[in-house]
């Protein structure tokens, strides 16, 4: 029982990261209908930037704030400079451009910081507290930061004029233009926000998986799974989906271990995590593409 609780708790913590990434993916999807395959590498790159600033003596949070802003600018630039001219290009071209971006950020990180694994400090104090047998301080921290991020974004999109304008631009670009909203810039801002959120995700997960250029590949897959489970067009759903997938991932591995211990039959374990993600992705895509919480959106033609 204790072990089960532990698994759920750490699943929630992983889920927090998936939720962040899912949020970033959703942000780009709702505003541009694109699936950003480079999101993982962007986050990884941002995590490296944070690491670099920490090496130069900055405090983690200050470093993260700076990098989130820089990532925001990178995101805006990527949209304005690279994707904008391809706006009416076929899907394949867009996908290929994303793959190109993935390659660029991946290799740049390797070129600048090398491929050796780096330690990344956790920003959360290592203290004992009630329930610390189940969950570590960093894991609690990840969950709290994710929730805070979600609340902040929710307020931004609900209450501020700019947030409203971004939603309007994503929902109905033609109509948004008729309200005087500069839709093109709104899409770029969506990209920027996604990149900033990705920076947070990367910096939070780096202390867990350690820093290296490949760190995000499998995490991104889980981010996709989370986004899809929650509904790739629904930010709130994406977060819930991220948590669900995190817990599910751990529970499946846990049940697999349990099964092996009691019956001696091995079916599934930690080694199959990506396969689990693959199955989740394909199942959700084929059976319920709008996700658990998404509503069917009218396809833009």
């Amino acid at each position: 029982m204790e072990q089960l609780l532990q698994q759920v708790a750490s699943g929630l913590a992983n889920g927090a990261i998936y939720a962040c990434l899912a949020l970033a993916l959703v942000m780009i999807f709702v505003s541009t209908d694109h699936i950003n395959f480079a999101q993982g590498e962007l986050s990884m790159f941002s995590a490296y930037l944070v690491w670099q600033l920490i090496q130069w003596g900055l405090n983690f949070w200050l470093a993260l704030a700076i990098v989130a802003f820089v990532s925001f600018l990178i995101g805006v630039m990527v949209e304005r400079v690279i994707l904008r001219p391809l706006h009416s290009a076929p899907v394949l071209s867009i996908v290929v451009v994303f793959i190109g971006l993935l390659a660029i950020f991946h290799s740049l990180a390797g070129a600048i910081w090398g491929h050796t694994i780096k330690d990344f400090p956790s920003p959360f104090p290592n203290i004992a507290f009630a329930g610390s047998g189940y969950i570590g301080p960093h894991q609690i921290g990840m969950i709290l930061v994710t929730i805070a991020l979600l609340v902040a974004l929710f307020s931004f999109f609900r209450f501020t004029p700019l947030g409203l304008a971004m939603r309007a631009a994503a929902q109905n670009p033609a109509s948004a233009r008729l309200a005087g909203i500069r839709v093109d810039w709104m899409l770029a801002l969506g990209w920027g926000l996604a990149a900033a959120i990705g920076a947070v995700a990367g910096s939070l997960v780096a202390p867990v998986v350690y820093l290296e250029p490949n760190m995000m590949a499998s995490i991104l897959l889980y981010g996709f799974a989370g986004a899809l489970v929650g509904g790739i067009a629904s930010p709130g759903g994406a977060v819930v989906g991220g948590f669900i997938v995190g817990v599910l991932e751990n529970l499946i591995a846990y049940l697999g271990n349990l099964l092996e211990k009691t019956t001696g039959v091995y079916i599934i374990g930690n080694g199959e995590k990506l396969t689990v993600a693959l199955i989740i992705v394909i199942t959700v895509l084929t059976l319920k593409p709008s996700g658990l919480f998404g509503h069917v959106t009218v396809k833009r033609v």
Partner: peptide
């Protein structure tokens, strides 16, 4: 220039209040 378009251009997923706020964005 306020354009009331064909098909009304409602932001269907937003509340009426939000629709009006979006309109005053500029």
């Amino acid at each position: 220039v306020g354009h009331v378009p064909e098909g009304r251009g409602t932001f269907t997923n937003m509340s009426v209040d939000e629709n009006l706020r979006v309109a005053a964005y500029t």
